[in-house]
Design a protein around this nucleic acid. Structure first.
Lengths: 208, 208, 208, 208
DNA sequence: TATGAATGAGGTTTCATTCAT
DNA sequence: TATGAATGAAACCTCATTCAT
């Protein structure tokens, strides 16, 4: 490995460290309450260093959010390609959400906050476009599966986009909700069971 | 009516005007981006006056949120007392949400934001307690209805609290979701149909 | 005088105080080295207060500069309207410069710095337009007088705009120069004589 | 040539490269707006390297300015030694200014900015002394020529220092002025004619 | 009670300078 | 000698809150 390559890799590593620190602090405090100094301190760097890797606070936050959205989209698209039944795919969607929540619960929270109106208003047009694009991919995948279910006569005969919205939004709502309950009650272990119950109910509701 | 009473009433009236202004601004901008000056201007008052009625920005915001929570709780409790079947009650819950969203969509958005972890972390213990209390009432009402459904053998045999969580969280998630789509796409009219579809699916999923 | 009027006047007064403080500090340190805190301190105000009267540092500085430019333009235009000979008008121009320098030497220094390329680059289009407009008025007045001189066969037969440029630029250069000598040598009293000599030479050079 | 000598020469060469880059950037942006990183990038070096050759940003800038001043002084002194009439010497002064402006217009601009009060205030005592010394040489040369003119009865009978000041300051003012007009109007070609007209006027004004 | 000018703490961001490699 | 990532001090600016009127 050449010296240039090594440096490049170190730089990437540093960027990841900053993103990790930022994810932690943003998740704990939210965009406005989090401070760059706190993120720097969490990353064991000085404030100025953050600006070598990200143009400003907003870009740091958005990079984080888009990264999250990409990750989820990838996982969902993988499910669609699998050679399994429609019902199993819906179950895999559930597993994707639960896996991602397990891996880093902040990921999902952050994503769903991004998609709430309040946050959307402060983003640049260009970033909004990226989010729309990636969201469209994820939802497109879900819609495809639901459409298959309707065509096969398994699911109720509604507009597939509306059904996909319900599916996605319910997941999102449940994740936000159980997370806030976790915070309020300092309990941690009822998230997964609740998610499973939720999915079961919604999947069942989708069927004819 | 004595002069003291009249003064008291005027004071209450002024407080309501401030809350109305604050609700508008907080809903448009979010807690951090909204400024006290903006709220004062919306209420056609000076910034200083706000502090005669509310200790600080946080208290103003929280008063608002609790008021919203109370309103929803009231409506839900009214449903529970009605002499109708379990299934009809679930349908009424849906109508309550839709009515409240119709009356002021920001009310619901605000409430669900309040219940997301981000906002919760910045509240005082005392306020958290109030929120917990009122939430408990609303959820208790929903849980009761679901428990009845289970006892009557109509609903699936799961823990009623989990089912209530799913119900509530799905509603919340769907409201946030459709609201963000509304903001992104400048469309307004698909909120109610989507909500109805969502309720239909979830209610159906609850049944045996 | 009504209470509103009095408040308005106080506000104007405060604005003038800030401009005075700013003029002092900017003249001492230059735009970049001067700090808002220093200006605030000079005005016996807190930093935040400055922003109640001026949008930002740049606007404060530019307000100052345009004020200066306006003042000079006014004085020059008054000379043009007087019923005196061309040669006397040129002499009056000299007196205007000397008077303004006498009244507040920083005024002229600031103005000529504004017109140096370095400063111009950092201004907004709108402000540049204002400067161009006011400059055009002042130069227009000077050009008119010179044109009269040429028409009357008193001045050399060159393009009046070029002659006006020379006149103006020489004044500016001499003011900057003697001011820097004043700073370097801590002498004060050779400014006015030098200015007079300069004007005499240039006026003489203009003549046939 | 020994290895030590060669190294020394390389070092000098590198220093000149840095000065060239710095001249370009300072001229474009001014002292405060220019950044060391930009200068380094222009010189195709890393920021750290600049500090091997110059103690800090200030010293880099001042070295540049003094170099410029030296250059102009050299040219002017050469004129003084020539075996030509007083009037021709004054004309040569004009040519020196025009040549230097032609060679690198930024040189003159930079020099005259250095001599404006704003810049002077931020310099160390030692550097000020150097500037004073070199300025004195240039002005001394000009004063000598003017004194000759007075002694020969060609020039008006004023204090030669004042006349030299007028000459120098007018040159400086005109260069700054036409340069700012060039920037404002994106015209390039009226500098030299204006300078020539200016010199003609001032030279004529100097004569009896 | 109502005002609104003033405050000043605290946040984001820049950039001259350093130092380990 | 050369690098360039990292530093951290210091600047601009905002806005919740106060207080004299």
């Amino acid at each position: 490995m050449g010296i240039h390559e090594r440096k490049q890799r170190e730089k990437e590593q540093r960027k990841i460290e900053i993103l990790n620190a930022a994810r932690k602090v943003f998740s704990n405090k939210g965009f406005n309450t989090a401070t760059m100094e706190e993120i720097a301190s969490e990353a064991e760097l000085s404030p100025g260093t953050l600006y070598l890797y990200f143009k400003n606070k907003e870009e740091l936050h958005t990079t984080l959010s888009i990264e999250i959205l990409k990750h989820l989209t990838d996982q969902i698209q993988k499910v669609v390609c699998q050679d399994i039944s429609v019902e199993e795919k819906i179950e895999r969607f559930r597993d994707v959400f639960i896996d991602v929540y397990d891996y880093d619960s902040n990921i999902l929270i952050n994503l769903f906050h991004l998609q709430s109106g309040e946050t959307l208003k402060n983003l640049s047009e260009e970033v909004l476009k990226q989010i729309k694009t990636h969201s469209a991919l994820a939802h497109g995948a879900i819609i495809d599966v639901i459409r298959q279910g309707i065509e096969q006569g398994i699911f109720i005969d509604e507009h597939p986009v509306a059904l996909a919205d319900v599916l996605w939004a319910s997941y999102a709502g449940i994740v936000l909700w159980v997370d806030s309950k976790r915070l309020l009650n300092d309990q941690k272990d009822f998230v997964k069971p609740t998610l499973k119950t939720a999915f079961k109910i919604i999947s069942k509701g989708l069927k004819k």
